[in-house]
Amino acid sequence: MKPITAADISATTPEQLTALRAGPPEAYAAWIQAAADLGLLEAQAILGQMLLDGHGMARDPEAALGWFKRAAQADHLMSINMVGRCYENGWGVARDETVAAYWFRLAADRGLDWGMYNYAHMLRDGRGGVARDPAAALALYQRAAQSGHVKSIGVVGRFHEAGTVVPRDLEQAFDCYRRAAEGGDFRGMFHLGRMLLQRGRLDEAEPWLDRVSQTATPAFLREADAMLRDMGVAARYGAGTVQGA
């Protein structure tokens, strides 16, 4: 394959890049690698994710972390968050939730919705050396939700359903789950389907529950199965896998 030059990168139109993304992953990976080597921050973040996933190239979490750190040092917000994810999960480095919390807070303070979401987890659970503070966690989830972050919208629903920090409000919870489900969040889909079942609206619940396994993590599927069994309902979906949460 002919080496990709800086001139090639500069001459690539948005339409050509879209076509590259839709084509063989190896060709797209070569373009991204070249762009990352030239210092394009977005390309460095994408390359890190491709290395983490093994998409278009051999999976290499350690190299992925290196690219995330390189972009993070230039203030690329999603890369800052992804450094945290790597430390949280032990991707390419020893697992260290304290370091993860540092990076998540940095991303949250800079206004990144994913950073708010991940740092809120630390506050909610008291992890990573962060003092447990459900009220502060909810405030961050709400800030992220206001920007349209669907996973945060769903978590806000859980606070309303449980009556944690805020008064219990099942209608508010239902609305949050609906919005999260419509945004593609598997947790939102499940909780919306579960509440529809509780309301006797089986025909509306089934399509949402049937979609859960398409993107849900195995751990969440086990949790969801247990919740349905506690309701006396058999699970309506099989095992599904995704990377990340």
Rank of each mutant, 00 (worst) to 15 (best):
L20Q: 09
Q243A: 14
D109T: 10
A72C: 01
L138Q: 04
A64V: 06
R124E: 11
V166Y: 02
A43N: 07
Y119P: 02
A72E: 00
L221M: 13
H149L: 07
W103Y: 15
L197G: 01
D37L: 15
D8I: 06
A11W: 07
D8C: 08
M82P: 03
A22S: 13
N89K: 14
H191K: 12
M82S: 14
A34F: 12
H76T: 09
Q49E: 15
H55V: 07
S147C: 09
L17W: 12
G193D: 02
N81M: 10
M227H: 08
P167D: 10
Q214L: 15
V130P: 00
V83W: 02
I4A: 04
K2H: 11
T164H: 12
D60T: 05
L221W: 00
L38H: 14
A7W: 09
G154Q: 00
Y141C: 00
Q142D: 11
T13Y: 10
A30K: 06
A71C: 10
I46F: 03
D203Y: 05
A29Y: 08
A181R: 00
V93P: 07
G115V: 03
R70C: 05
A7N: 13
A107M: 03
G183C: 03
P218E: 07
R201D: 10
D53M: 02
R179A: 10
L51S: 01
G66K: 04
A139H: 08
V99H: 05
S152A: 15
F186D: 09
A181E: 01
M50C: 05
D133L: 02
L202E: 15
R179W: 00
P218G: 10
F186A: 11
V242F: 09
F220Y: 12
E171N: 11
R127N: 11
T18R: 14
S213I: 07
D60Y: 03
A27V: 08
G115N: 01
Q44Y: 06
